[in-house]
């Protein structure tokens, strides 16, 4: 049983700690510092959020996605074929992302995440997972008048992201996580996702994960078990119905067990977390659990995110003492 995160970590702390990245971005936008100086601030904050994840006691961490403006544009800006359009509400949150717009053939140009992975791995005593927004979600949240079929765009993105996955594997990433939350609620497109992941992860021999959040797995489970990944991440907080839905079939993979609410500041107790592990153990045994928040942590203030991770680790420790794994 591992304690981990889904991905993002709040970029700035609250007073009295300094909001270094916010200040650096503002200064960069006013032309007061160079891109190089901004990148240095991003590196510093990455080290800081790695430190907090390690201090909380996680077994497997992320780079906090500190450099990501949002899940879509961070990737789309660096592929060819996209321009970036206006603000859109991100699913049922009060956060917004800039919508990618497909303007030409989508293609991979050069590594997008490799340098960030290497930097994080070089500054972390714990393994770091590499995270990529999935081809289906990128297609679903983009404006597209070129491919005109979500399937075609998804497959083109899968082809492009295949290069990225291979580059990350080459760079030494021990786990490549694909985030495709938009497949929930779009079960008719499940075959498109299956085909896309097959292409994207072809030749990827390190551990692979598919993460989802917010939605119900109704309609895509147990089909999710057919995907060419080792770990499936599911949010059990936003949708309590996912507990029951998971009982439809024996769970044959590792489970990314999203049980700490990444969108609310109420702090779970270590007992509640241990209870949840116990409750899922007849469907998925502890040794196959990656226990994590229900989604990225950027919906929370930094201090609450850190506190939640500490409790998650305490809960996992309690459950291990109780159940093994």
């Amino acid at each position: 049983m591992l304690a981990t995160v889904v991905g993002s970590y709040p970029k700035i702390p609250n007073r009295p700690r300094p909001a270094r990245l916010r200040a650096a971005i503002a200064r960069f936008e006013r032309g007061e510092i160079s891109a190089k100086e901004l990148a240095r601030a991003e590196d510093e904050v990455t080290v800081e959020v790695i430190g907090e994840q390690v201090e909380a006691g996680l077994d497997l961490i992320s780079d906090g996605q500190v450099r990501w403006e949002d899940d879509q544009t961070h990737i789309a800006r660096r592929l060819s074929g996209f321009s970036i359009d206006g603000l859109q509400r991100y699913l049922d949150t009060n956060t917004y992302f800039r919508q990618p717009e497909v303007e030409g053939a989508v293609a991979w140009q050069s590594p997008i995440l490799v340098r960030d992975y290497q930097f994080a791995a070089g500054h972390s005593p714990r393994p770091v997972k590499a995270i990529i927004t999935g081809p289906y979600t990128l297609a679903a949240l983009s404006k597209d008048e070129r491919y005109r079929s979500r399937r075609d765009l998804t497959l083109a993105l899968a082809e492009a992201l295949h290069r990225e996955a291979l580059a990350l594997q080459e760079a030494g990433a021990p786990l490549i996580q694909v985030n495709d939350p938009l497949i929930l609620g779009n079960s008719d497109d499940f075959p498109v996702l299956a085909e896309a992941l097959k292409r994207m992860l072809d030749g990827v021999t390190v551990e692979k994960a598919l993460y989802t959040w917010f939605g119900s797995i109704e309609g895509v489970y147990p089909q999710l078990l057919e995907l060419p990944v080792d770990i499936i991440g599911i949010d059990f907080v936003s949708r309590a119905g996912n507990w029951e839905a998971l009982r439809k079939a024996p769970f044959t993979k590792k489970l990314g067990f999203g049980i700490v609410d990444g969108r609310n500041t109420r702090l779970e107790t270590a007992d509640e977390i241990a209870q949840a592990v116990r409750r899922i153990s007849d469907v998925c045994p502890p040794e196959r659990l990656h226990v994590n928040p229900s989604c990225g942590l950027e919906y929370l203030p930094r201090e609450e995110a850190f506190e939640k991770l500490k409790r998650l680790v305490e809960g996992v420790t309690l459950a291990q003492a109780d159940l093994g794994g």
Binding site: P10, I12, E69, Y96, E298, P301
Partner: peptide, 17 residues
Amino acid sequence: IGGLVRSYGNRYYHKPV
């Protein structure tokens, strides 16, 4: 009033609790 949460880009707000 709660801590700072990012809404988009470099925009943050104090989210109530």
